[in-house]
Amino acid sequence: MLIDLSSNENPYAPSCKVAEAAIQGLEGMNRYVEPEELHMLRKALGEYCGVGTERILPGPGTGYLLERVLCGLAVGRELVVLNPAFLSCLDLAARLCKRIVRLQLKPPSFEVDWTLPASGPALVILESPNNPTGQCLISREALKSLLKNEDCLVLIDEAGYEYAGKTFMDLIPDHPNLALCRTLDKAFGLAGLRVSWLVCGDAFMKALHMENVCLCRPALRAALAALEEQRAVLEEVKGVIEERERLKAALSQLGLEVFPSEANYLLVRSPRPDLGLLLRKRGILIADLSGQWFSGYFRISIGRPEEHQALATAVEDILRTEEGFMD
């Protein structure tokens, strides 16, 4: 069986209670979700984030919510993203935005010059922690400076918030041009149900139809059940972080360059640019970034200890025994 460490998924399924809630959500599947049910979820998500219900816009996955933002706010704006970018909405952005500008991330520092290249109204979409580096690349000062320009909207994907423990949530009430995106895909382990939400500053709230929520009932029920278990989830996150640091040490010892990470994945540089292919032949999938970024860089999701053991064994075997043409 393939060990998939390529998609930043949580290797652990949510509890039985969450699964039962999803199953209960199948009852009455011939009926649309009631506004009251949606309100309950928005309220629970608002409480989890410490903001008012009115700022919460849930949706089936971050990709969907980014498309909502693009449709509502991107026309005539320049979209600024980092490269590499893992956004499924760039095709739509190319149709709606004035232009798309990527800022190249360069190892090993990954420093970003946040002086925007945009000449007019802009929409900046970035992740914190960043994907694939796992590092928080924008400081509070740099963000505040960006937000001073009212023509510049900033959307920060905080999908890895539970792992990094850092957020810009407190800036939301005073910065109308800021929105954050959170998800239950990662730490809460609901990737297959796709529950994400936006926390909107005033400008985002005005442009998006906050009452227009698209979510199916099993996902909604599972989300409510998962949020009730947040203490257990945060405990599990601690385990993932410990495992991440163990894997980091193991891979470094084997000869890979492993970058510091605050997320549920590690960025590594391999002396073998074909490491991804060689691991795939051994039944392990990691994300190869060379298609749009530097050759020899890979992103490895944090999995289970036994998966990491298999990975380390395979990496050791490859680096010791495989011959490359370009050695």
Binding site: D4, S6, S7, G63, P84, A85, F86, L87, S88, C89, L90, D91, G276, L277, R280, L285, I286, A287, D288, L289, S290, G291, Q292
Partner: peptide, 14 residues
């Protein structure tokens, strides 16, 4: 390159 893409790559590859 496409052999090495995970499930949810979006536009990781152009």
């Amino acid at each position: 390159q496409h052999l090495l893409q995970g499930k949810k790559t979006g536009s990781a590859v152009q």
